[in-house]
Design a protein around this nucleic acid. Structure first.
Lengths: 87, 87, 87, 87
DNA sequence: TCGGAAATCAAGACCC
DNA sequence: GGGTCTTGATTTCCGA
């Protein structure tokens, strides 16, 4: 099961190999970050903080930021529309 | 949960703020990586590759690597068990 | 969620009652099996075996079996992809 | 990695094999039950019921039953204690 | 766009 | 009670 089926062109094989490699690298970095986050929460817990609550706070912050970004985008859209009306 | 929010000491407040900030930073990096990965798959698709299969391949690679790590752990466990038999 | 509980028709009430009853029965059986499993491990421990390792062995067996099923699925995927290339 | 380490006695090997086999059987039955439960919820959904709410109902029922059993046990304890006082 | 399938994330259960 | 691991919920992604 490990031999490459040579019905695929070399180009395709190379491309696949490259793609898989790059994704693996990205996911490895993501794993590292997950470890980091876990450590932060562990640290918080050791400090006497409730991780569960902290997660909620973080989630809320993220939602707020997303909302701001969305409003920003909407604003841009309005501006573009107004500018379009002028022309 | 039994005390009002504003009864938290300054230390706690500072700690919470710091924790949340750090987690937000880490998660922002994770979001970037997710974007990267998505772009890689999009690129692959544009190249004519099947993203679904690529995901499977990546998953298998990761599983293989995880399995290796697990073998290590199991081996350690065996060793510990054998040493335990001696005592 | 927008209507008061007692506005449910009799059909719905009967259905809910039946569903819940059946799930409870199934989960009761699952609880029994959990007890069985626990007893088996207790027995093994009494025999001088390390339950922790036994769990690992069981997990590995299950993973192996799952892997076989996954191979099938992956193969199907490959076949589908190849057939797709024809069209 | 598949050859049995013959440092284990035949008794132990047989015992391990039997234990693992029995646990696997029990877990296979548990898997079947999980499938059953999933099907019941799917059926409920097809009937127009909200699976999430149903899960909460089931959980509450289970908690109630557990509480009853606990009270029952406590009652038995009291009875035993009273009988003990007589003797 | 909707609906199901898959990945990610949080919560609960279980063992020690 | 603490840590780990399974399980359930949420979100995301792809195809019809």
């Amino acid at each position: 099961m490990d031999e490459a089926p040579d019905m695929l062109g070399h180009n395709a094989q190379t491309a696949i190999k490259g793609i898989v490699e790059r994704v693996l690298n990205v996911e490895a970095e993501m794993d590292d970050l997950k470890v980091d986050r876990k450590e932060i929460y562990a640290e918080a817990k050791a400090f006497g903080l409730d991780a569960k609550i902290l997660r909620k706070v973080v989630a809320r912050e993220r939602a707020d930021k997303a909302k701001l970004a969305e409003e920003e985008a909407l604003l841009d859209l309005y501006i573009a529309a107004m500018l379009g009306l002028k022309s």
